[in-house]
Nucleic acid binder design. Structure first.
Lengths: 143, 143
DNA sequence: CTTCGTGCAAAGTGTTTGCAAGATT
DNA sequence: AATCTTGCAAACACTTTGCACGAAG
């Protein structure tokens, strides 16, 4: 389904549809959100020879095309999402690293306020809230 | 002022008070928020020979001691803050990279809701909201 | 004088770049 | 056939580790 839109987007810019590009996009769609490394692993399950360099280049390309975006959750590598999909806000636990998702509606009032006050357009689908999750908060109390 | 608390914290754990540790803490306090590299630069203005390795190790130590924390704003290096200081929420512009700060009060309702609903304790002082700042939003429109 | 901390150099990650061979249109 | 893409290898930026010397308690 999104293959056709990928093909169109590429064609309209004089770019080419390749197996790698389809596979990377498919991997991001399948994985929900994933690091370049995770995408690489997923892609290689189907096409063994694909190089990590191509993953990076393709993710960047797909982002320029507006098909995916990325966020930075905690340390290390960025996480890629399909763009325009069910957006979500990430809750990242500093203790255990768990990543939870909540509806972006929760932040809408804040986003509206910021847009009104200073014209800042919050990318509401890619917010990460750091903190301590319920489980770890309990564990901490017990100590 | 915080030198004394640093000294106490170190002593209570059998660790030693060194010039480097004082300087790194001071740099973080002075800079408000800074990357390891920026801390390094600041420290070297006072003590030329201090190695970047020591900056990393000391920031990690100060974080364990609860004196500083770090966040990830956009790509690249983490940003260190004094812990417990005037907290702030970061607005990071995806286009121009500008970092703005707003009061954490704005997020308090959201934080309270999350704490109530699922026990997630948002680290409200270290939230980064990504998006497009007012200036870049305008520029984008004109294209 | 004992143990901890630092500097230095080297090894690790994760990511980007240059270029020739290969694929797509 | 023309030009975009890929793979490979090397370069990079940032961070961590091992070890011997130096410093703090």
């Amino acid at each position: 389904m999104s293959d056709s839109s990928l093909a169109e987007l590429l064609r309209s810019r004089g770019l080419r549809l390749t197996a790698q590009r389809q596979l990377v996009l498919q991997a991001v769609l399948d994985l929900g959100h994933a690091t370049p490394e995770q995408v690489h692993t997923a892609v290689r399950e189907v096409a063994a020879g694909v190089n990590i360099t191509t993953i990076y280049r393709t993710l960047e390309l797909l982002e320029r095309l507006g098909l995916v975006t990325h966020t930075h959750l905690s340390h290390g590598s960025p996480t890629y999402h399909a763009a325009g999909e069910h957006q979500h806000v990430h809750l990242v636990c500093r203790e255990c690293g768990a990543i939870d998702e909540i509806s972006p509606d929760m932040l809408r009032p804040v986003a509206d306020q910021l847009a009104g006050q200073r014209g800042f357009q919050v990318d509401i689908g890619h917010v990460a809230l750091f903190g301590v999750c319920g489980r770890c908060a309990q564990d901490g109390d017990e100590k």
